[in-house]
Design a protein around this nucleic acid. Structure first.
Length: 450
DNA sequence: CCCTTGCATGGGG
DNA sequence: TCCCCATGCAAGG
């Protein structure tokens, strides 16, 4: 959309009616081409590099220019071109960019890379404090799988939840490292579900029976019943460990699911020790894709995908992520794309060596959060990330919190018009415990650990 | 009656 | 037009 087509000043903090013809001012470049149209006041502020000083004072992402010390906002589209990221770390304001003779201010940037671990923890804690719009105001329940386990872990705004990240190494870097080590196979194990206490509401999940085997055609439309595949077959191991979580984000109540890929991962050429190789359902290419999605972020054109928060260096922004590759062929609708922020991922990953890969989110419907205790799972998500089930009865999951309290879910489906409708039954205790309500901005996410 | 369970329906993407 | 899925609803306990 060209700038002149805007109905209102595109400064979200202003929103004044569209300037008259010839009165608008050119703002930041739009991804779609053209430029943002701003009212005279906002446009002038933008031109004079004081836009963020006026409108984003309370936003996160403020840093100091490494050369002149000027305070720079580095967390919005308006400021995107007003600074530069330095190879050595830190940022450089526009003025200093024009003045190559400027010398960096000492003690501004690099030291952060060499903080001792405890300071690094504080750094992450600090980053939360600097992000008033992002804190997790309520705990969330996550199912997390690591070391053959599936666990639900709680996340909250615990300020020092992110621990043990290598110094100067972001979770992105961890992902990069893992992916550089080669694609990994993801498999369903007989998981021990556990929940780590990372906040006020810790949870764990533990399936009670052997996982059912994956089927190469798990999305077959006439597949409501498949007597050839049941939990007693030898195919019991070969799916992605996954987890799911219930929780509340800053933008409302939230239900999330995560899966984690253990580290180190199995070599893609290593056959599974038992059962059919996962390649029948999830090719090594898909595994690679699964991981690669996290790094390269294929171009997004869907809703809310303004830019890549990681690529652009704004890990705190809540932007829909293309989900990791599931085993099904169903394309996940953008509405289910996870919007968890990288910082939240860091919080969730906690002190583990795992990297969490968000898979999907779901807004809770009235019936999801109602008293019936059934939560409808998006079919594509269920078939891509949940353990395959061949019988409508599905399989049970036991959820347990860090204090030993267990919750029981039943993952099952209903035959529906030659298709399936996947549900989680028995979610009421979790819903109530997390105070989730109908109409909340609830999300359901699956997150994989790499 | 109330609750649970399983399926049907239909709006909407 | 297809089909997903939010919700309705009837049967059974």
């Amino acid at each position: 959309m060209g700038a002149a087509a805007a109905a209102r000043c595109m400064n979200a903090a202003c929103g004044a009616p569209a300037p008259g013809a010839g009165d608008w001012r050119k703002g930041w470049p739009l991804r779609s081409g053209g430029f943002a149209v701003l009212c005279d006041k906002c446009g002038l502020a933008f031109e004079q590099f004081v836009f963020c000083d006026i409108f984003h004072q309370k936003e996160s992402g403020w840093r100091d220019c490494s050369f002149c010390g000027k305070r720079l906002h580095c967390g919005c589209v308006a400021s995107k071109n007003s600074f530069d990221l330095l190879d050595s770390g830190g940022v450089q304001c526009a003025n200093c960019m024009k003045n190559p003779g400027a010398h960096p201010v000492s003690c501004q940037v690099a030291p952060k890379l060499f903080l001792p671990p405890q300071n690094n923890q504080r750094l992450f804690g600090k980053s939360d404090e600097l992000l008033p719009g992002r804190p997790l105001e309520s705990p969330s329940l996550m199912i997390d799988s690591r070391n053959d386990d599936i666990a639900i872990i709680a996340k909250s705004n615990h300020p020092f939840m992110v621990k043990n990240l290598e110094i100067g190494q972001s979770s992105n870097n961890l992902r990069q490292k893992e992916i550089e080590n080669g694609a990994r196979q993801i498999k369903w194990e007989q998981p021990t579900l556990s929940i780590g206490d990372m906040g006020r509401m810790p949870f764990l999940i533990r399936p009670q029976s052997a996982l059912e085997s994956p089927r190469s055609q798990c999305t077959r439309r006439d597949d409501n019943r498949d007597p050839t595949a049941d939990s007693t077959t030898s195919e019991s191991i070969s799916e992605a460990g996954l987890s799911m979580s219930l929780g509340i984000a800053n933008n409302g109540n939230k239900m999330e699911a995560t899966s984690t890929m253990e580290r180190p991962m199995v070599s893609p050429t290593t056959p599974f020790s038992e059962g059919r190789e996962l390649a029948t359902t999830l090719s090594p290419f898909q595994h690679a894709q699964r991981a690669r999605h996290f790094l390269t972020r294929p171009s997004r054109v869907a809703e809310g995908a303004a830019f890549d928060p990681m690529r652009d260096g704004f890990p705190h922004l809540r932007v829909a992520r293309p989900p990791a590759e599931g085993r099904g062929r169903n394309q996940l609708l953008p509405r289910y794309w996870p919007r968890i922020t990288d910082q939240e991922l860091q919080q969730i990953s906690g002190d583990s060596n795992s990297t969490i890969v968000p898979l999907f989110e779901k807004v809770l419907s009235a019936s999801d959060a109602g008293r019936i205790g059934r939560l409808v799972l998006p079919k594509a998500c269920a078939e891509a990330y949940f353990p395959p089930i061949s019988q409508p009865e599905g399989r049970p999951l036991t959820i347990q919190d860090a204090k030993g309290k267990e919750w029981h879910f039943q993952f099952r489906f209903w035959p529906n018009n030659n298709s399936r409708m996947y549900v989680l039954e028995g979610v009421t205790p979790c819903i109530q415990s997390l105070q989730l309500q109908a109409g909340d901005t609830g999300d359901l996410q699956l997150i994989s650990y790499i």
